[in-house]
C-alpha cells in the first residue's frame, strides 16, 4: 500500500456534532485515508453521517475534534481543489448547460480573473468534457430540456471543469433508472481512468461501490465511524460483466451483511 504514504485525504479521529454541545453527534472517532488517484467508496446504513463526511472533506464543516488534512493542508476553510456532485443535479435553469458547466470557473479564485479573456479556451474544455460524458452538442440546451440522466452527466462535467484533484460524489446516481445508472458508472469509471482524479463516492448502492471503487469503507450507524475497510480485488479496466462473477456477488453479500449488522446495532 505505497499510496498510503502520502494520502490526499486524511481524516484523523474526527468528532462532529451539530447544534451546540448537546446536539446530535454525527460522526465520532472517524478515521479514514484516501490515497492520491484512488477511487474510494463509502457505504453504510442511512443516517450514518455520510453527508457529514462530504462536508468535512470539502471544508464546509470544520470538525470540533480531530483533524481533516486534504492535499497536505489542515482544512480550515472550503478547499477549492474539490469538485462536488449530489443526487440532485441542481443545474441553474436560466443558464444553458454549457454556462452551467462554466459556473465554477466564475467562482474559483485562480480561474475567475482569467475567464473573460480566455473564454474560448474554457468553452473548448467544457465541450470536450461534454463529449467525454456523451453529451456532445447539448451545451446550448437548457438543463430542463435534458433528461435526468443527461442532467447528471452535465453535473459531472460541472464538478470536473476546474480540474479538481478530488471529486466528491454524494449518491449521484440515486435518482436514475437501472440502465442509465450503469451507463453513468461506465462514464465515471472512464473519467477516473483518463484523468487520474481522486474520487470519494458516498452511496447506498453496494453493487455501485463494488464495481467502481478500489477501496470500500463501511460506516457504522450514527454516530458514524469506519467499521471496516475492504480492498476491491478486481482488475481494471472493469467491464459491467464483472458484476455477474461469483467473487463480485460474494463481496456485495459480505458488505450487505455488515451494514445489516450495523443497522441492528443502532
Amino acid at each position: 500500500m505505497a499510496h498510503l504514504v502520502s494520502p490526499l485525504v486524511s481524516i484523523e479521529n474526527v468528532d462532529m456534532r451539530y447544534g451546540g454541545p448537546n446536539g446530535t453527534l454525527a460522526v465520532s472517532g472517524l478515521n479514514m485515508k484516501v490515497g492520491k488517484g484512488e477511487f474510494a467508496a463509502v457505504v453504510g446504513p442511512s443516517g450514518c453521517g455520510k453527508s457529514t463526511l462530504m462536508k468535512l472533506v470539502t471544508g464546509l464543516h470544520i470538525p470540533q475534534g480531530g483533524g481533516v488534512i486534504v492535499a497536505g493542508k489542515q482544512v480550515t476553510e472550503p478547499v477549492s481543489i474539490v469538485g462536488m456532485a449530489f443526487q440532485n443535479p441542481t443545474m441553474l435553469p436560466w443558464r444553458t448547460t454549457l454556462d452551467n458547466i462554466l459556473l465554477p470557473l466564475e467562482i474559483v479564485e485562480r480561474h475567475r480573473h482569467r475567464l473573460r479573456r480566455h473564454k474560448a479556451e474554457y468553452v473548448e474544455k467544457a465541450e470536450h468534457l461534454l463529449e467525454t460524458v456523451g453529451l456532445k452538442g447539448f451545451g446550448s440546451k437548457f438543463p430542463w430540456q435534458l433528461s435526468g440522466g443527461m442532467q447528471q452527466r452535465a453535473n459531472l462535467c460541472r464538478a470536473l471543469i476546474h480540474e479538481p484533484e478530488l471529486l466528491m460524489l454524494d449518491e449521484p446516481f440515486g435518482a436514475l433508472d437501472a440502465f442509465t445508472r450503469e451507463e453513468l458508472w461506465c462514464v465515471i469509471r472512464d473519467l477516473h481512468a483518463a484523468q487520474g482524479v481522486t474520487i470519494v463516492l458516498v452511496t447506498h448502492d453496494l453493487r455501485e461501490a463494488t464495481f467502481l471503487a478500489d477501496r470500500i469503507f463501511v460506516m457504522s450507524a450514527r454516530p458514524g465511524r469506519i467499521l471496516k475497510e475492504h480492498v476491491v480485488p478486481f482488475a481494471r479496466p472493469r467491464d459491467l460483466e464483472v458484476m455477474y462473477e461469483k467473487g463480485f456477488n460474494d463481496m456485495v453479500h459480505e458488505l450487505h451483511g455488515e451494514i445489516a449488522k450495523a443497522r441492528v446495532a443502532a
Binding site: 476553510e77 462536488m84 456532485a85 474559483v108
Partner: peptide
Amino acid sequence: ETEDVLRALGAKKMDIMLKVGIPR
C-alpha cells in the same frame, strides 16, 4: 446543494447572491 457546491469552490456570500440568489 447549490449553495454547498459553490461554497466548496470558495464562493463568498456576494457570489452566491449574484450567481444564484438574484436570478432565482
